[in-house]
């Protein structure tokens, strides 16, 4: 039946377990973008908690090596920030 055929569910993907964390992050991001970023209020990072939770989930479930390198790229940045921030922050 045509109606049944249209109701095909999407196949589960590697990142499906992160779906609820992802939508929490996107809800926050979209609100921030529309209400703050485009109005020039970009001096403060927001949705940090949502992003961390979602990203941790991604790093656990993402099997694709090529895509994982994008996640790792951010880790490197974080490390660099900590190293650079250390001495100046102590003063």
């Amino acid at each position: 039946m045509g109606i049944l055929r249209e109701k095909k569910p999407s196949p589960p993907s590697a990142t499906s377990p992160c779906a609820h964390l992802r939508s929490a992050y996107y809800d926050c991001f979209n609100r921030w973008y529309t209400e703050k970023f485009v109005k020039g209020q970009w001096q403060k990072e927001e949705c940090v908690v949502e992003w961390r939770k979602y990203r941790t989930c991604l790093s656990e479930h993402l099997q694709d090596k090529q895509l994982s390198t994008f996640l790792e790229a951010e880790d490197d940045n974080d490390v660099a920030k900590v190293e650079l921030g250390g001495p100046s922050a102590s003063y």
Binding site: S10, Q43, E45, W51, Y54, L58, L67, L71, E74, N77
Partner: peptide
């Protein structure tokens, strides 16, 4: 099927 964000950075 899916849209995932792998990386995000804001230059404040």
């Amino acid at each position: 099927l899916e849209v995932d964000t792998l990386n995000q950075k804001l230059d404040t």
